[in-house]
Design a binder for these strands. Structure first.
Lengths: 217, 217
DNA sequence: TAGATTGTTAATCGATTAACAATC
DNA sequence: TAGATTGTTAATCGATTAACAATC
């Protein structure tokens, strides 16, 4: 009894959530109140059972045979699950073009991220501002993170500096790291690293393309 | 006989390649000629057997018991596999901060991507240049892709415009799409879409963090 | 009622990990 | 030789898909 880990949301399922949310919002805008798993599956090119299981795992209300699931309930539950409504505070390190892109992305705050400070390892840019956030010297990282109780660090510095910055963030009490540097970071077990390796993604795309063209010819 | 799909490189293995390459380059800079799977596994926090299998799958030369694998052979084979040496041509659509970041990323050309044209759906920016690439109006997409035989399209436009742009790219004969818009794109079966959904990644990070803090407290 | 849709149990698939003999 | 390391076969694990009874 009470083994209610039953319909846990897996990592893969979590990846699908933002796409469900996108589709559900479209339906909500059209004032459609319920939707079935097969319908969403069709729109997103997913398996029907998979969608149903995902919905069952997150929805606080059961689906109804024939009718489907409540659009608004699903949206609420998914947005809650992904933390869209209460933004985590984060610090960003690096001032290159990726850093600019992240800081410029007004949307992030709606998706659970509030950047409260930015740092640079390069003394040149320090003191300047990007999108209203002042750039601080990187030796202040640990201190500021600890003082402000920030739990997320975003790394956009070049590969060579990434590990050092990472260590500073960890020293400052950060628990999760969003890493845009194309390197593996060594961290203690309890730290979560999410790698966003654009070069790796690109390589995958290129490889797949090559394969596809080979089989086609 | 001749069922030589034996040690195929899986999608997951492909994802690990750039990290192997990073480690191998470090070794090469130190003039180290061979390396064992357990050593690399330790550095990257991976399973030893997994690394050995990955190496075996890509290496044109077998590993030697006791000695390990040739660093330079592995590097050559992996870079070849990922297409680092012969860049695919691509077009980019959108001129927001992510587009700027991609265009500014000098590194991409070394990793198999050469952006030959950029487009914008917004008439304002047309005619201007970003990093030496002139911005063209988006109604030229299909034509130019077809004429230049470009096979990769990069979408960085807002969500609402992504599907339209996608259709134009497909009409132009593009075979692979690197999609930075946070939406699902509908495409014919033979088209490869790789989604780079930063908002989704962020949500995952936030969710994991929440879970981690819950179990810790 | 008939039929679409749900929820659940079982089968399948793919990737990772374990076990172990072969080899330099 | 002894021992580290490879390569391969088998076991495990997790996620997806199929099958089907329950239900509105």
């Amino acid at each position: 009894m009470y083994e209610y880990n039953k319909n846990a949301v897996t990592t893969q399922a979590l990846h699908r959530m933002p796409y469900y949310i996108q589709q559900l919002r479209i339906l909500q805008n059209e004032n459609i109140e319920t939707v079935s798993a097969p319908r969403i599956a069709e729109r997103l090119n997913l398996n029907e059972v998979q969608v149903r299981k995902d919905f069952a795992a997150v929805s606080s209300v059961k689906g109804k045979p024939k009718a489907g699931f409540s659009v608004s309930e699903l949206l609420d539950n998914m947005e809650e699950l992904l933390g869209y409504n209460n933004a985590d505070e984060a610090v960003l390190v690096g001032t290159g073009s990726i850093a600019h892109a992240i800081l410029a992305h007004e949307g992030f705050q709606n998706y659970g991220l509030k950047i409260v400070a930015a740092f640079d390892t390069n003394t040149d840019g320090i003191g300047s501002e990007i999108n209203g956030i002042k750039i601080l010297p990187s030796d202040k990282i640990s201190n500021l993170c600890r003082r402000m109780q920030v739990h997320i660090g975003i790394i956009t510095v070049p590969a060579q500096q990434a590990q050092v910055v990472c260590d500073q963030l960890v020293a400052g009490g950060v628990l999760a790291i969003w890493n845009f540097a194309p390197v593996h970071l060594s961290v203690p077990d309890y730290i979560l690293v999410q790698n966003e390796n654009l070069v790796a993604s690109l390589a995958m795309l290129s490889k797949h393309l090559k394969q596809a063209m080979k089989t086609k010819i």
